[in-house]
Structure formats: structure tokens, C-alpha cells
Nucleic acid binder design. Structure first.
Length: 499
RNA sequence: GGCGCUAUCGUCUAGGGGUUAGGACGGGUGAUUCUCAGUCACUAAACCGGGGUUCGAAUCCCCGUAGCGCUACCA
């Protein structure tokens, strides 16, 4: 399948810089790239933009890989995957960038700039003071250097950068696939730095050179890059290369309308994993932030997203990250999942929560049944583990409020009677147990609730949870009777101290 | 300050010259039940403001306002 825009099989790339963890905004950009590539039968490249040595973090790199894999966004080319366009770390391509910067120098489209940081700072301060209406930015001081001056400075080993010669006063126009035509006046643009004095390229140079060399057809990136795009257009032009197509994704905002940050709701992708979210839920939620397939469809598998995805339907407006809806969606996907598939992840939570580890945890079949009791009433994986502790050890205490309500003196005899009946009950299945309870209640002339609530509290220590009879069935006869006895003794002791 | 982008219920969005402006989350009410959830039903809730264009504007154009982005030898 070829794409409708320029007839070539699309090649896209996700190009994070390893300066921090992959957060949901980045994940959404990666997702849109992935969906676009898959929809058109194209290629999805992962490229690491690590040209800023000062901000590089090795852990961040690992986390980016782990996050993308967890979400199921497998890249076709990139680190670990290989490919013809490699290497995929920009820090390993510095020779390439230098060569290309030289090429621009030779063509007279760029020049060496020896200005010190000091001079630049002073210049900016003066511009600030003069409140220059426009055209603030580098004053092009070194553009006027003669060849002899440059040669002398070079001979003296003077540190320098390479800057692009930006044309004076011209419209730079490009078409954003989501917003339409966007135009900038080149007079607004700086003579931007292409190669830094440490020999590393700036984002702008590396980005353009790599996108060209890797034959990228569509640049789908966050909309904070819109203002950089005219600069990139000028670089393509200086090289004489045809530019790719651009589409800028709207940003994702925090609930208060501000920027997404760790402090404000949006953590890294892996934090959502740790918090008990399912990848399919996060993906489905994220795809709806800035895109909709049309109509009323919301719940979609990855394959359905791929089939329906199109850039034309991507929203231009920033979207607010609504954690509540994510939770709802996660609950939905939790219900869809089998007990079996949930087991490893719930087990991790149990192992953290239940120390020392109860022997019952080793019984996989039992664990699966417990999960079955909780997955439909939970929103996150962690909740399944948090609320099910009593399936692995007897309650250490009873919820005080519930105890006041359900553990009364007259409950004593009820629990005793129930213990007796339960001991004789066979089979110990949920329907049979319910039948037994209704029968006993009737015999006593009491509403079934009078039996059910104390039993629940005795068996679990809390007053909320799965249906009582399903719970008793999973717990098993021996455990249930033991807990009923424990509760009986507890009530008796409480009654004594009161007197 | 300059430049740019954006604007439909609280939130995500559908629609797009003539509609009772639709759906989802969240809220409210009710039903179900042994609790909590869940599920189901019902319900309140929106076209930023002003000018044009037009028989007709939420929809197209302009202006304003607000929000956001960029304005680095960061990405």
C-alpha cells in the first residue's frame, strides 16, 4: 500500500531524546507514528536523538525501550532491531553530520561563527533593552568575517560553531497535514547553529540529515516543533533535498490545563504499568486523545486502530489527560482479560503486599479463582491484590464500624448454628451454600441478610467484596468454619470486656 | 515583546451552511442484589465574544479575547 500524499511507501520515525523517562505524551506520538506506518504498510523507525551530552541519561534510554515494548509498539528499524539506515543513535553519527555541515560551508550556505557565549549573552541583553520589534536573535556578526580572518582564527584553534545562512526576507511555507498551510517570514528566523563547538550537531541539523538519509517520508511529531519547521525547511533547501511531509500532533495537557509533568498527574508510561494499568487500556485511551475514528466508536483493539487510523482525523487542539476515564477504560479491559493472563501481574502485587509470603500463593488454580472474583469489580491490577489478602490468611482484625453493626451478642448463636450447618454441608458450592443460607434464615424467621453480613465479616474481616457464596466456595469449608469460630470467640471476648 | 498554533457539555470527542447539536467518562436519579463494585435504564450539561458572507452560520471569512508553543552551542 502506498500513501496518498506522494506515492511512496511511508517511512516514519519516533525520535525521542534520552533525557528523561518516556511519558504519555511521547507514547502517544510513538503510537500515532506506529499506527500511520502500519495502516499504510510502511516502516516505523526508532531513532535516539542523544546529541546533548549534558542531558543524556542511560536509564532513560532503557526505559524508552521497555515502555515501547510494553505497549506493543515494536519498531521495524532502530536500536536492537538494526536496519540499513543505522546506526540509530545520533551520537554515533557525528562524522556524518560534520561532513554535511562542511558541505554547506563549501556551498556558501553556512558559515563559521566564533562568537563567545559572553558576547551572545551581552547581545541578547542589549536587544532586550532596545526592545527590538522583530529580528531579535543572532546579529550575524561572524557572517561578515573575511576569509583571512576565518583562516587566522582557525589556525589559532579558536572554538566555533557552524551557522546556517538564513535568507533575509522571504516567506517560508510548509503544509502541515493536520493544520494546512503555515507560513513564516524568514526575517523572524535566526541564523541557527547547525554544529556545536563540541562537534555535536544541533537537533535541527541531525534531524534533517537523518530524516533524509533514512528516507523518512512523513515527520509526525509534537506540535512544540511547529516553530522549528521553517528552519528545517531552509536546511532541506540549502542541501537541495526535497523535504518530507509534516504533521504536528497536539500536546497533551494536565487536568488543570497546564503542562503534563510528574507532579501533575502524568507520569512515565512505566509508572502507569506499576500502578496496575493494562497496556491495551493505556493505548486505547491515548489514541482517543487527539484522534477519533468518527461515529461513536471508542473501544478498539490495536488492529482496529490501525485499520481506522488517518492523519486527517487527528485533532489540532490540545487534549487534557483525564485519569478518571483511563481508570474506567482499564476496568473495562480488566473484565475482558482472563484470570490466567492476569495471574503473573497480580502475583507480583501479592508478593509485594503479602509478607511473609503465605503458602497458598503457590496454588495457581486457587489464585486464578481469587482473581476471577475480583477482576470485574476492580479498576487496576493492584486493587485485585489489595482487596484479596484475606484469601491467603485469616483476618487479623475486623473492620470496627462493620463489627459494631454486624457482630452483636445475638450473632454468637447464629454463627454457632451456621458453623454446624456448614460443617455438614456437602457439596460446598455457591448455589448449594446460598440454598442453605436461605433455608436457615427461614427456619430462624430472619431475613437472609442477618446471616450473610456477619458471615462476610467473619470470613473476610471487611464488609465489602465479592458475592458471599462465591467467596465461601473459593475459601473452602475448612477455612470458613475456622474463621466463623474465630469470629465467635472474638464476639464472646468483646462481650466479656464490656461487662 | 515578536512570531505561530488552537477554540463544541467539567473532560475526551462526533457533526460541519438548514440537526431535537450525537456518543463516552465523570455527575444526578432509579432498577438489580447479601455488601462494595459491576450491569441496565433515565437525566442535567456545550458550539469563546463581536462583526461580516448568506435566504440561513456552531459550521466559511475577519477582528478581538483566552490558552498553549517557539523565540539556546536543549530537544
Amino acid at each position: 500500500m502506498s500513501n496518498p500524499e506522494n506515492g511512496r511507501v511511508p517511512v516514519v520515525r519516533f525520535a525521542p531524546s534520552p533525557t528523561g523517562y518516556l511519558h504519555v505524551g511521547g507514547a502517544r506520538t510513538a503510537l500515532f507514528n506506529f499506527l500511520f506506518a502500519r495502516h499504510h504498510g510502511g516502516k516505523f523507525i526508532l531513532r535516539i536523538e542523544d546529541t546533548d551530552q549534558k542531558r543524556f541519561q542511560a536509564e532513560a534510554l532503557q526505559e524508552i525501550f521497555t515502555s515501547l515494548k510494553w505497549l506493543g509498539l515494536q519498531w521495524d528499524e532502530g536500536p536492537e532491531a538494526g536496519g540499513e539506515g543505522g546506526p540509530y543513535f545520533q551520537s554515533q553519527r557525528t562524522e556524518t553530520y560534520r561532513r554535511h555541515a562542511d558541505q554547506l560551508l563549501a556551498a556558501g550556505r553556512a558559515y563559521r561563527c566564533f562568537c563567545s557565549e559572553d558576547r551572545l549573552t551581552r547581545m541578547r541583553a542589549e536587544q532586550e533593552k532596545a526592545k527590538m520589534a522583530n529580528g531579535s536573535g543572532y546579529d550575524r556578526h561572524c557572517r561578515l568575517l573575511t576569509e583571512a580572518e576565518v583562516a587566522a582564527l582557525l589556525a589559532a584553534n579558536a572554538p566555533h560553531v557552524i551557522r546556517l545562512k538564513v535568507p533575509d526576507d522571504r516567506a517560508v511555507v510548509f503544509r502541515d497535514l493536520i493544520r494546512g498551510e503555515i507560513s513564516y517570514d524568514s526575517a523572524q528566523l535566526d541564523d541557527l547553529v547547525l554544529l556545536k563547538s563540541d562537534g555535536f550537531p544541533t537537533y535541527h541539523l541531525a534531524n534533517v540529515v537523518d530524516d533524509y538519509l533514512m528516507r523518512v517520508t512523513h515527520v509526525l511529531r509534537g506540535d512544540e516543533w511547529i516553530a522549528s519547521t521553517p528552519k528545517h525547511m531552509l536546511i532541506y533547501e540549502a542541501f537541495g533535498w526535497p523535504p518530507p511531509l509534516f504533521a504536528h500532533m497536539p500536546v497533551i495537557l494536565a487536568a488543570d490545563g497546564g503542562k503534563l509533568s510528574k507532579r501533575r498527574g502524568a507520569a512515565s508510561v512505566l509508572d502507569y504499568q506499576r500502578a496496575g494499568y493494562l497496556p491495551e487500556a493505556l493505548l486505547n485511551f491515548l489514541v482517543l486523545l487527539g484522534w477519533a475514528p468518527g461515529g461513536d466508536r471508542e473501544i478498539m483493539t490495536l488492529d482496529e486502530m490501525i485499520a481506522a487510523f488517518s492523519l486527517e482525523r487527528v485533532q489540532a487542539k490540545a487534549a487534557v489527560f483525564d485519569e478518571t476515564k483511563l481508570e474506567w477504560m482499564n476496568g473495562h479491559y480488566l473484565q475482558q482479560r482472563s484470570e490466567e493472563s492476569l495471574l503473573p501481574e497480580v502475583m507480583v502485587c501479592w508478593e509485594k503486599l503479602l509478607l511473609p509470603l503465605p503458602a497458598a500463593l503457590a496454588d495457581k488454580a486457587y489464585a486464578r479463582r481469587v482473581i476471577g472474583l475480583f477482576k470485574d469489580r476492580s479498576k487496576k491490577i493492584i486493587e485485585i491484590a489489595e482487596n484479596s489478602g484475606y484469601f491467603f490468611r485469616d483476618p487479623a482484625a475486623y473492620d470496627p464500624q462493620a463489627a459494631r453493626k454486624y457482630f452483636k451478642r445475638e450473632t454468637l448463636s447464629i454463627l454457632e448454628l451456621l458453623s454446624e450447618k456448614l460443617a455438614a454441608q456437602e457439596p460446598f458450592g455457591r448455589e448449594a451454600l446460598e440454598g442453605l443460607y436461605r433455608q436457615v434464615a427461614e427456619g430462624l424467621g430472619l431475613p437472609a441478610g442477618k446471616l450473610i453480613h456477619p458471615t462476610r465479616l467473619a470470613a473476610s474481616g471487611v464488609s465489602s467484596g465479592p458475592g458471599l457464596f462465591a467467596m465461601l466456595e473459593v475459601l473452602g469449608k475448612e477455612t470458613v468454619i475456622r474463621r466463623l469460630q474465630n469470629a465467635r470467640n472474638w464476639i464472646a471476648a468483646a462481650a466479656d470486656t464490656k461487662e
